[in-house]
């Protein structure tokens, strides 16, 4: 007992110190957390509240709590589902293309010995241009009569006014703009692969192709998943490219554009908020899927390589 007592005492002192430190940490984080709650938490909550009401600014007197009937209205609406699937198609195709192109660019940037700085700068230029500006560039390019790309098409075609060509051009603009971002994230992943491992693999008899698929890719997995997550979330919320390129004409609008049209154009706060909440839930579901199913760890934590 007599020998144990001081030890217990010491342990208590350590835990007291720890508690004090934890308290200090809380106090230091509090202002930031509070501001976050005010500027993001409250609008989210407010949107949820609005989504449960009938609230159209054109008929302010008819405002009332209607429970989940807004959700029923949106989820049975063909316009919503069209926008939803268009968004999904844009997200999946553009992220897939970006992954492949981004990987090629990353490899090129990582492996070049000559003019590395110049190549990296060149690759990053599209990412440095404001999306709306770039989108106008694409719009003019595809406008019949004046555009340099439209001129290459058979006369009489106006791709931005048709659904499938329109979506294709939106995807093209997305890919052109964000591939550099993907490449940058993937290049960080390439740096995770030790040179010795690639040398060992070539000694073990692996061709360049086998080295890439059996050593480089598995080791880059955490970086690839983080890049995919970032890009998927971003792509799903696509707005400005579509707004400028087609304005959502010919059923090419995304869910974000639809929510915007209802909220700002239609002044229907209830339905618009419902859509926003649904977008929020979809994005949250994507994140959970990535984190749970693929087991990505948040950037900064020690990823378990399994």
């Amino acid at each position: 007992m007599s020998t144990r007592a001081p030890a217990r005492h010491a342990r208590r002192r350590i835990s007291e110190e720890k508690t004090a430190q934890r308290r200090l940490a809380l106090w230091l984080c509090a202002p930031a957390a509070l501001i976050m709650l005010l500027v993001t938490g409250w609008p989210i909550l407010y949107a949820v509240l609005l989504s449960l009401q009938r609230y159209d600014l054109r008929f302010p007197d008819e405002r009332a709590w209607v429970g989940l009937s807004n959700y029923a209205a949106v989820l049975t609406d063909p316009f919503w589902w069209n926008a939803f699937w268009v968004t999904v198609v844009i997200t999946v195709i553009s992220v897939a293309i970006e992954l492949v192109l981004g990987m090629l660019l990353a490899l090129a940037m990582y492996r070049t010995l000559i003019g590395r700085g110049v190549i990296r700068t060149l690759v990053l230029i599209p990412y440095g241009i404001v999306t709306v500006v770039a989108a106008y560039g694409w719009r003019y390019a595809w406008t019949p009569g004046t555009g340099w790309l439209a001129g290459a098409l058979p006369p009489g075609s106006a791709p931005l006014t048709e659904k499938i060509p329109g979506v294709a051009i939106i995807i093209l603009a997305e890919v052109w703009k964000t591939t550099p971002f993907m490449a940058l994230l993937l290049m960080a992943g390439l740096a995770l692969v030790p040179d010795d491992l690639l040398k060992a693999a070539s000694m073990d008899g692996a061709t360049a192709w086998q080295r890439f698929w059996q050593v480089t890719l598995p080791l880059m997995r955490p970086a690839i998943l983080v890049a995919l997550l970032f890009r998927t979330l971003d792509a799903f919320r696509i707005f400005d490219n579509i707004y400028v390129l087609t304005g959502g004409a010919a059923d090419t609008g995304s869910v974000s554009l639809l929510a915007y049209r209802n909220l700002i154009g239609g002044l229907n706060l209830g339905i618009g908020s419902t859509m926003s909440v649904l977008i929020f839930l979809t994005v949250a579901a994507i994140s959970v899927l990535f984190i749970r199913a693929f087991g990505i760890s948040a950037p900064g934590t020690q990823g378990e390589r399994r």
Partner: peptide, 14 residues
Amino acid sequence: DIAMIFQSYALYPH
């Protein structure tokens, strides 16, 4: 057809 052993061992972690 030569095998090499590296200082870092260069084992494949996955």
